[in-house]
Design a protein around this nucleic acid. Sequence first.
DNA 1: CGAGTTGTTTTGAATGACTCAAATCAACGG
DNA 2: CCGTTGATTTGAGTCATTCAAAACAACTCG
Lengths: 145, 145
Amino acid sequence: MHTATEHDPAARIRAAGLKVTAPRLAVLEVLSGHGHLDAETVFERVRGELPTTSLQAVYGVLAALSGAGLLRRIEPAGSPALYESRIGDNHHHLVCTKCHTVADVDCVVGEPPCLEPSDAGGFSIHTAEVTFWGLCADCRSVPAA
Amino acid sequence: MHTATEHDPAARIRAAGLKVTAPRLAVLEVLSGHGHLDAETVFERVRGELPTTSLQAVYGVLAALSGAGLLRRIEPAGSPALYESRIGDNHHHLVCTKCHTVADVDCVVGEPPCLEPSDAGGFSIHTAEVTFWGLCADCRSVPAA
DNA sequence: CGAGTTGTTTTGAATGACTCAAATCAACGG
DNA sequence: CCGTTGATTTGAGTCATTCAAAACAACTCG
C-alpha cells in the first residue's frame, strides 16, 4: 500500500534523484515538525547535531530539497525565505504584521491553482498563493507594548 | 463633488500629513502609470527630471508614500520590492515565473480581506494577498529560448 | 513675509540574506 | 574498492535595503 518512499527521508531524497547525505537528512529532520524556519535557524539547529555543517551547505540543501519538491519555500514580504515540510497540499499562510509569525491555513478550495483569476491576461497560471495578513493572538493581546 | 485631493498629487501628499517636496511629486509622477517599478527604476526615471535626487531619497519617498497609503508596495518572491499607484481596491497580481513580469488582476471578491481563511487560528485578518504564478504570454511563446 | 521648527534629503557607510566559485570530499554505480 | 559525479567547505562577493549624521527646505506663526 505505502511505499517506503513516503516515510523514509533517505528514500525520499534518493527518489528525487539526489544523493543522500548527512546534512540533507539533518535538514529534513529539523523541518519535520510544523514550523516555518529561515535558513539561519535551520543552520543553528542542524549544527547542534552535525557541527561541521556550514551555512552555505544549508542554503544548498534547502535549495536542492525545495527544488525537488521535498520542502516548500515561502517568502512573505519583510521576512527572509522560510521553509516548511508540509508539501503537496496547496495550503496557505497567515502572517502576523507585527511579529511576523507564520501559521498554516488549509486551502478551502482544493487543488492548485485553488483560485482562478477573472482575467489571466495571457498568463498560464499554475499556482495561486494566498497570504493572509493580520495580528496573531499574542500580538493582539499586547495592544501597545 | 470631488475634492481637489482626489486628483492633485500635492494635495494628496499634504492630506497625508506629509510635506510636499519635489522628489515626492516626481516619484508620484513616475508611478502615475500602471507599472510595477522597483526602487532602482523609479530612481532612474526620477533622475531624468530631477538629477540631484539620491537613491536613498527615493527609498525614503517610497517608504513615506506607501506608509501613507498613496502607493502600494508588493514583494513577490524573487523580486525586489515593487511599487504601484493603483491603491484602494484590493486587486491582486499575476507574476511570470520566468521573467518576473507583474500584471494586475481585479479582485473578484471585493473588499479586503476579499477572502476569509477557514480557520484564522486566533489571528485577526485584515488583508488577503493573492499572487498568481504562471508564464506570461511572451515567455510562453518562447518555450526553450 | 521672515525666522524657527520640524520633517526631508544628501552623503556616506553598514547590514542582512543570499549567491558564486574553487578546492576538497563523499555517495553510489560498477 | 575505485572512479565519477554531485555535495560540502571555505572564502569572497553581490544586491537590495537600512542606518546615521549633517545640510537643507516646507510649512507655521508671529
